[in-house]
């Protein structure tokens, strides 16, 4: 079973991202589970969402404490040093930042990739909506979900016009992540 944790801030769509990721995995023929760290959501406050992907039905209901993958939607969340402290050894992390991984002081035993998702989102969508950029980046760097599955998830959720922009964002994230 693969466990993924998403860290963002209220308003960034961490829960939507977890759901899109699980849907993309499901459309790729896998079992998937997505759920938020249930709370009283407030704009700007730290939000956590979880995804599990497996080849067999998922029964486990606990939160995810040592994920295989983490997605950080807002790099300022790394400031307290706690978020990445409990990841599995060798876990892969994608961080939304304009900096390079080498410019960040982060734990050594992790595979860190960075992407300027906020910048790309402004360019493609015209708003700092970073989910689909990061979803593409996750697909591109891990291969756990395919673009086709992610595109289907986006089309199911959004109107045609919004889906089109988000699919463009998805593809850009997919291409860019392996260039950094």
């Amino acid at each position: 079973m693969i466990e993924i944790r998403i860290h963002g801030r209220g308003g960034q769509g961490s829960v939507t991202m977890a759901e899109l990721l699980a849907e993309a995995a499901f459309y790729g023929g896998k079992e998937a589970q997505a759920f938020p760290n249930f709370g009283v959501e407030r704009r700007g406050a730290p939000v956590t969402a979880y995804v599990r992907i497996d080849s067999k039905p998922i029964r486990l209901r606990s939160q995810i404490y040592s994920p295989d993958y983490a997605i950080i939607q807002d790099a300022s969340l790394l400031n307290d040093g706690k978020i990445l402290a409990d990841l599995k050894r060798g876990a892969s992390v994608i961080i939304n930042t304009s900096k390079k991984a080498s410019e960040l002081s982060l734990p050594k035993n992790l595979k860190i990739k960075t992407i300027n998702a906020s910048g790309l989102a402004l360019e493609i969508i015209g708003k700092p909506i970073i989910n689909t950029i990061l979803l593409g980046a996750f697909a591109g760097s891990t291969g756990l979900i395919q673009l086709s599955g992610a595109e289907k998830a986006i089309k199911e959720r959004f109107s045609a016009e919004i889906a089109e922009k988000n699919i463009a964002a998805l593809r850009r994230g997919f291409e860019v992540i392996n260039q950094n």
């Binding site: 699980a22 589970q33 998922i58 209901r61």
Partner: peptide
């Protein structure tokens, strides 16, 4: 059903 744990969880 367990609130949040099931109501707010996406699954197959």
């Amino acid at each position: 059903l367990d609130g949040f744990v099931l109501t707010h969880t996406l699954e197959t």
